[in-house]
Deep mutational scan, measured.
Amino acid sequence: MEVVDPQQLGMFTEGELMSVGMDTFIHRIDSTEVIYQPRRKRAKLIGKYLMGDLLGEGSYGKVKEVLDSETLCRRAVKILKKKKLRRIPNGEANVKKEIQLLRRLRHKNVIQLVDVLYNEEKQKMYMVMEYCVCGMQEMLDSVPEKRFPVCQAHGYFCQLIDGLEYLHSQGIVHKDIKPGNLLLTTGGTLKISDLGVAEALHPFAADDTCRTSQGSPAFQPPEIANGLDTFSGFKVDIWSAGVTLYNITTGLYPFEGDNIYKLFENIGKGSYAIPGDCGPPLSDLLKGMLEYEPAKRFSIRQIRQHSWFRKKHPPAEAPVPIPPSPDTKDRWRSMTVVPYLEDLHGADEDEDLFDIEDDIIYTQDFTVPGQVPEEEASHNGQRRGLPKAVCMNGTEAAQLSTKSRAEGRAPNPARKACSASSKIRRLSACKQQ
């Protein structure tokens, strides 16, 4: 084909351009004929944790799935940006308080904090938690009735009371019990989460009196709706648990309003109706937990002794299953770290194939690490110290990083047969305790 000078094309009309061969290198194709290559998922490591896909996002930050490269346990990490926390009232204080509380709590029905990582340079905090497959609110939203069968609701409620009793025994008032803060594992274990607005009572406090509340409006008791200066913290949790039980068994809320002012007005009056299909035992329990006067409201001991709580409820309806993943529609909620794991395991070791967030990740503290002497050669063979940054567990980050890069360049065919977990650990520049 004859090559045409581009400067001469402006002298031709459209018809003349076609005659000189423009149609031979300008093609129009339908979008259905285009085959897009999927974007390669680059592996990203935060300390010893391999990052997966997004699980959810809230006002405080994002939650992603991660894999512990040492234990191969599935975890969830809450990623918090200090810049964003400053824009939220009491944001930083709530996060630090939640970390302090979770560090000393150990119960099967309370979410466990596994690790805390802090990135000084990017001003990011990573709260590594045990993995929960789904939230209770997500399960309720997945069915038209917006409720659980009585047998399933009873099982979840009993676990909620177990976890709540443990928190109260530790002198902690949750203040925000609701389905949105109750998570579930694949085995059906309920976990109380989000202790950001919780309050730890003084060890020598005479009672459970509280003065502040930041919980969700629909789950607040009349004493808070009416603006009382002080109130019983434990009875606030009992009320919120009662509203939660009402919601998961009926699909409704005892109090509603077009806006928060109308909602608080209705809560302050204390008038509500219980659907007739709840039955006398459940209705009596709800009335005891939603008692207007805090002094007359049920205690956890009274809830445990109630006939509806103690009764064994046979399954009359099919239980609400864990819904498919909202993004991938995966009904099994498979591990989202698998594509990243395959990338590390299947590809040659190259620095361009993975990302390490930083050479140094500070753990379990908000301060910069200490310094240790770096050896410097002298005339008599002895070495003197220069400062060298280290990880919180004493690992020399720069030395590990250099060693990792040197190993990656060394030709050794046997290394390709290593397991995925050992490869992740070798790529991680800074081991965590």
Rank of each mutant, 00 (worst) to 15 (best):
P179W: 01
E293G: 02
R333F: 04
L167E: 00
L245H: 00
E396D: 12
V114R: 02
A43R: 15
E396R: 13
G233A: 10
K44L: 10
K262G: 10
V197G: 02
P413Y: 12
Q7M: 01
Q100G: 08
D207Y: 01
Q37D: 11
S59W: 03
S193M: 01
H379D: 08
A43L: 14
V66W: 03
Q364H: 03
A347S: 11
D350A: 04
G56F: 01
L263I: 14
K287W: 01
I274G: 06
E374C: 13
V150S: 02
V116P: 05
A93R: 14
D162W: 15
L290Y: 00
Y261A: 09
T71A: 12
L167Y: 02
A377Q: 14
Y60S: 12
I267M: 04
K48A: 04
V368I: 13
P149W: 03
P326V: 04
L263A: 02
N266A: 12
G58F: 00
E342C: 08
M18T: 15
V243L: 03
I300F: 08
Y118L: 03
R28W: 08
C391R: 14
I88E: 13
T24F: 11
K191W: 02
N181H: 01
D330T: 14
E130Y: 01
P281I: 12
T336Y: 08
S213P: 10
G279I: 11
I88G: 03
N393I: 11
L167K: 00
C73R: 08
R409N: 13
G408Y: 12
V114Y: 14
R86M: 00
S271C: 02
K191S: 08
D284A: 03
M51Q: 15
S401K: 12
D208T: 06
G242Y: 00
V390F: 08
D348G: 09
K403A: 14
I172W: 02
S169R: 05
S404C: 07
A316Q: 13
L167N: 03
Y60R: 13
Y60I: 09
F231I: 15
K84G: 12
W239T: 00
E342N: 11
E165S: 11
F255Q: 05
G10I: 15
D229E: 06
S240C: 11
T395G: 12
P413S: 12
G233D: 14
D330G: 09
G370F: 12
Q112F: 07
H107V: 01
L182I: 14
F298S: 05
I88L: 09
R211C: 09
C151K: 15
G268N: 06
L427K: 13
K84T: 03
S422Y: 13
I177Y: 01
D194C: 00
A218G: 04
C151L: 02
L160R: 00
L341E: 14
N247T: 05
I88T: 12
V3A: 12
L167R: 00
R333P: 15
V34A: 06
V66T: 07
T244Q: 00
C134F: 02
T71R: 04
E349F: 06
D115G: 02
K96L: 03
K416R: 13
G408K: 14
Q371Y: 06
K81I: 08
A318F: 14
P315S: 11
Y126G: 03
L167F: 06
G188L: 03
A93V: 01
C73F: 03
A273W: 15
A153M: 00
P319A: 11
G270L: 05
A414Y: 14
E376Q: 05
G251D: 04
A43S: 10
N380T: 10
V337W: 02
N247G: 04
I35V: 05
G276C: 08
E291C: 09
Q305H: 06
G394D: 10
V173A: 01
Q214E: 11
Q382S: 12
A398M: 15
E121A: 04
Q220C: 08
V95A: 09
I267T: 07
D348L: 10
M51K: 10
V110N: 03
L282G: 02
Q371C: 10
R104I: 09
E98K: 07
T244M: 11
H379K: 11
K329Q: 07
T363E: 15
L50D: 11
M129N: 03
A43G: 04
E374H: 06
R147Y: 12
R74H: 15
S31A: 12
A218I: 05
I177D: 00
G394W: 09
Q170P: 01
R409W: 11
A389V: 03
K416N: 05
T336A: 13
Q220H: 04
K296N: 07
F219L: 07
N109A: 03
E33L: 06
L54H: 07
R405I: 14
L341W: 09
I111W: 00
P321D: 13
A200S: 03
D365H: 10
S422E: 12
I99R: 03
M22W: 03
P254L: 02
C430V: 06
L102D: 02
T249K: 00
A205V: 07
S401W: 04
T212A: 11
A377V: 10
K262V: 09
K388T: 11
C73T: 15
A241S: 04
K44M: 03
P281R: 05
T185P: 01
V368Q: 04
D141P: 00
S213A: 11
T363A: 04
A417T: 13
M139Y: 13
D68Y: 00
K82C: 09
G270V: 09
N393S: 07
Q220P: 01
Y272S: 04
W332M: 11
I177M: 03
A417L: 13
D355W: 14
A410I: 13
H345D: 09
N119I: 13
S283N: 11
L50T: 09
L102T: 01
Q399I: 06
N181I: 00
E14A: 05
S213M: 07
E98V: 01
K312N: 14
F255D: 02
L201I: 12
F366S: 14
Q170R: 08
T24S: 07
L164V: 04
A76L: 00
I99V: 04
K388V: 10
K403V: 03
N393T: 12
M129S: 03
I274A: 05
Q123E: 07
I161H: 00
Y246G: 02
N412L: 15
W308L: 00
V63Q: 02
T185N: 02
P275S: 05
L183G: 02
I79Q: 13
H306Q: 02
Q305I: 13
M127R: 01
D358N: 04
E199W: 01
H379L: 07
K78P: 00
N266S: 05
V63D: 00
S59I: 10
T185D: 02
R425D: 15
M392N: 03
K287L: 04
P6T: 04
I224F: 07
L72Y: 06
K64S: 13
Y261F: 02
G394P: 13
A241C: 08
L105Y: 10
E16Q: 08
D162C: 09
F264Y: 06
G268Y: 10
K44W: 10
K175I: 03
Y261I: 15
L282P: 02
D208N: 11
E120F: 13
M335K: 06
P280R: 07
L85I: 14
G251T: 08
C134Y: 07
Q7R: 11
R103A: 11
R297C: 00
M127I: 03
C391S: 03
G135A: 14
E291T: 08
T250R: 03
R304Y: 00
Q220G: 04
A200Y: 10
L344C: 07
G135C: 13
G58A: 05
V372E: 09
N247F: 04
N226E: 01
T71Q: 14
D258S: 11
E291F: 04
H306L: 04
R40V: 15
I29Y: 07
L245P: 00
K311W: 06
I267V: 07
D207V: 07
E65G: 01
M139W: 09
M335D: 03
Y246S: 01
H345F: 11
P324L: 11
I248W: 04
Y131S: 08
K62D: 15
M127D: 01
Q371L: 12
E375R: 12
P321G: 06
K423C: 14
K269Q: 12
G370L: 11
K81F: 05
V95D: 13
C210L: 02
S69K: 10
H345G: 12
F255S: 07
P387S: 11
V128F: 07
V143Y: 13
Y362M: 15
V337N: 13
K82V: 05
E357C: 11
T249P: 00
M289A: 01
L184Q: 05
V4F: 05
L113A: 02
L140Y: 00
I238M: 04
A398S: 08
S240L: 03
L102W: 08
I29E: 11
W308F: 06
T336R: 13
T185G: 02
A273M: 04
D229F: 05
M136Y: 00
Q220A: 10
V110I: 03
T336L: 11
E57A: 07
L400Y: 13
L245V: 02
R383N: 12
I99Q: 02
Y253S: 02
I161W: 00
G268I: 15
M335L: 06
P89W: 06
E145P: 10
W332A: 14
